[in-house]
């Protein structure tokens, strides 16, 4: 009988425990991704019963020469920049505010987290009522600016449309990321903060020189997750365009993918766009991670 060492025995159990997760990952994540990439080289049409033909790089050439795709890249980039930066900064600020309060900390966290529980469709519907020309969006802004009767065209002007979608997104997810920052701040060692207080550091100095540097891993994680989520944003833009808002300023890559697949039935071109979006996401994530690795702080 062949002798099996204790380490190998342990490793077998390890493999068994991770097997279900690995299997599910292969079935529902890796396989669809590889299959989508494989499909990019064929002319697969949804509904078609004909066998797909191999077309090489034709789909890539078509998509990369398509003005619609580049408009989508622009719409996605503007939305991501518009949502990702304020989302990261404000959730950090709110995280600091929440942790600095002694009273009602849980209640504030709960209140801030509430929008994240809503489905994106419901959130968009609520905000569409607010942004309706006769809705409270115009009323509030007109009251503040003393501009009675002005229609700020939240749902029709290209700039305002982007502001509207970004507003909804930030409103919906700021609570979620605030809580992640609260958790990160809670991990800052109490002894380090006490040492800073004894050394005579002011609150601002403590935040700037101790809390923020120690929060870098959390900030990195939040910034990557928000960036990826923004790049994948779909529901708000979809619902807005379904309710009459112009498509061009809102036609983010995910919406373009959806229309190419479900309306035009061209699943191969949709796969090309998905793959290109994946590449963009991968490059941005890797560059963000490498830039952070150069500035690690330890106490």
């Amino acid at each position: 009988m062949k002798y099996i060492g204790i380490e190998k025995k342990k490793a077998r159990w390890g493999y068994m425990f991770v097997a279900p997760a690995v299997l599910l990952f292969f079935m529902f994540s890796l396989y669809p991704m590889l299959n989508a990439f494989y499909n990019t080289f064929f002319n697969i049409k949804l509904l078609s019963l004909r066998a797909p033909k191999f077309v090489g790089l034709k789909n890539y050439i078509f998509v990369l020469n398509s003005p619609s795709f580049w408009n989508s890249m622009k719409a996605t980039a503007l939305f991501t920049l518009g949502a990702f930066i304020p989302l990261t900064i404000f959730s950090l600020i709110f995280g600091l505010i929440v942790t600095s309060r002694m009273r009602n900390q849980k209640a504030i966290q709960l209140l801030m987290y509430t929008p994240a529980v809503l489905s994106s469709v419901v959130a968009a519907l609520i905000w569409m009522i607010i942004f309706d020309p006769r809705g409270i969006g115009n009323s509030i802004v007109n009251n503040i600016l003393q501009t009675h009767g002005i229609d700020h065209r939240w749902l029709t002007d290209p700039v305002m449309l982007r502001v509207s979608t970004v507003t909804i997104y930030v409103w919906k997810y700021i609570g979620y990321f605030t809580i992640i920052f609260v958790t990160g701040i809670a991990k800052v060692p109490e002894s380090t903060l006490e040492a800073a207080t004894i050394a005579g550091a002011s609150t601002m100095q403590t935040i700037r020189l101790i809390v923020l540097p120690l929060l870098k891993p959390t900030t990195l994680m939040v910034s990557i997750v928000t960036m990826l989520n923004c790049l994948k944003s779909f529901s708000t833009q979809y619902l807005f365009t379904q309710r009459g808002a112009p498509l061009e300023p809102l036609n983010v890559v995910t919406l373009n993918i959806y229309n190419t697949a479900m309306r035009d039935l061209n699943i191969s071109r949709a796969c090309v766009m998905s793959f290109l979006l994946f590449l963009v996401m991968m490059i941005l994530t890797l560059s963000r991670m490498s830039s952070s690795e150069r500035n690690v702080t330890e106490y």
Binding site: T156, P246, L247, E248, R263, D264
Partner: peptide
């Protein structure tokens, strides 16, 4: 086969003139 896409393109064109 492309009627849904045509409808959307006409929608986009009308919106460009009317809203933009």
């Amino acid at each position: 086969g492309n009627s849904s896409a045509v409808n959307d393109k006409l929608k986009g064109a009308v919106e460009s003139a009317m809203l933009l």
